[in-house]
């Protein structure tokens, strides 16, 4: 198992490097540099600026400096748009906010999805199951950018219960709607996957053996069915994590949480590639790290694991 995890890490590292290199070269081939504007700058000024950002260096040197900066100092370089801030400042300001509600949403989506899915499977073909199936089917079509305005209309404008945006140090009133908006469609898909996987497991031969042994039903489910049923769910958590990271951009923008998504969208509108790259690489790194965790969980669930 240690060897297995080592091998997964060996795959993870090149993934990250490829991601960084890919992003870097995308930036290079982009038409128009970051300092092309309507009013052309005098050549001397442009040269000065380029020297300051290291843009006059050969390509491979820029690449290498950038990569080395990230790896050794966790330094994503200066922002192109804000002369006085570098990318690290921007990340440090917004990331904790996004991370807070993001993690809460992820945990809630996972637990709720698994819980409802398992119960629906155990109560297969009862009204509870039908409701769960129906609700999750429609909820899958409610992505964050649809949920967010609906929630605000209902809870802020109609009922006046919750603030329509802001962060306020992460008080719970400010957390509720971002979390619900971000997690709804993933609760639905995790529920569906859990349910069908649990149903399949409950039909398998070793569950029949467990029942033939006279084990009480709760033991059959908890001891025998749970782990195998969780395998497909766990492998779905990787893509869910990516999707939630992505979704957080909408939440940050719509609820003005001050999270990193706002800075990202602004940088996209300003063509501030440095910030875009930094955020993309940060999130890419998180994804790779999370996938590693998923692999470990997988190995724990399945003793047969081998690669």
């Amino acid at each position: 198992m240690t060897a297995y995890i080592m091998r997964r890490i060996l795959v993870a590292v090149p993934t990250l490097v490829i991601l960084i290199v890919l992003c870097f070269f995308l930036m290079q081939v982009a038409p128009g540099g970051p300092f092309t504007s309507e009013r052309p700058l005098p050549p001397q000024v442009l040269a000065n600026i380029e020297a300051r950002y290291g843009l006059d260096q050969p390509l491979w040197k820029q690449m290498w400096d950038y990569l080395a900066g990230i790896v050794t100092r966790f330094d994503f370089g200066p922002s192109f748009a804000y002369r006085d801030r570098d990318v690290n400042d921007i990340i440090a300001q917004g990331f904790p906010v996004t991370l807070t509600y993001g993690l809460i949403s992820f945990v809630i989506a996972t637990l709720a999805g698994m819980g409802v899915g398992v119960v629906a499977a155990i109560r297969h073909n009862t009204w509870l199951d039908y409701i769960a199936v129906g609700a999750t089917f429609s909820a899958q079509a409610l992505p964050n950018f649809v949920m967010a305005p609906i929630l605000v209309i209902v809870f802020t404008w109609q009922l006046g219960w919750l603030p329509g945006g802001g962060w306020n140090g992460g008080q719970w009133q400010y957390l509720v709607m971002p979390v619900i908006a971000l997690s709804t469609s993933y609760v639905a898909s995790i529920t569906r996957i859990t349910r069908s996987s649990m149903l399949e497991t409950l039909n398998s031969s070793f569950i029949r053996t467990a029942r033939a042994k006279g084990l009480p039903e709760h033991k059959v489910i908890w001891r025998h069915a749970m782990k195998p049923a969780m395998l497909p769910v766990v492998s779905y958590l990787g893509p869910t994590f990516v999707a939630m990271i992505t979704g957080s951009v909408v939440i940050d923008v719509y609820f003005s949480t001050g999270g990193i998504g706002r800075a990202y969208v602004d940088s996209a509108l300003n063509r501030d590639y440095a910030v875009m790259l930094g955020v993309t690489i940060l999130y890419g790194g998180l994804t790779v790290l999370f996938n590693l965790l998923v692999d470990v969980a997988y190995a724990w669930l399945d003793p047969k694991i081998r690669y």
Binding site: F206, A212, K213, G214, P228
Partner: peptide
């Protein structure tokens, strides 16, 4: 039924590959 099965009445199945719980 659980008081009887496994105690006084036991059963074994055709395919031993799938009849045992894989993670125990």
């Amino acid at each position: 039924a659980n008081r009887v099965r496994g105690a006084e009445l036991a059963m074994i199945f055709q395919d031993p590959l799938t009849a045992l719980t894989p993670h125990l």
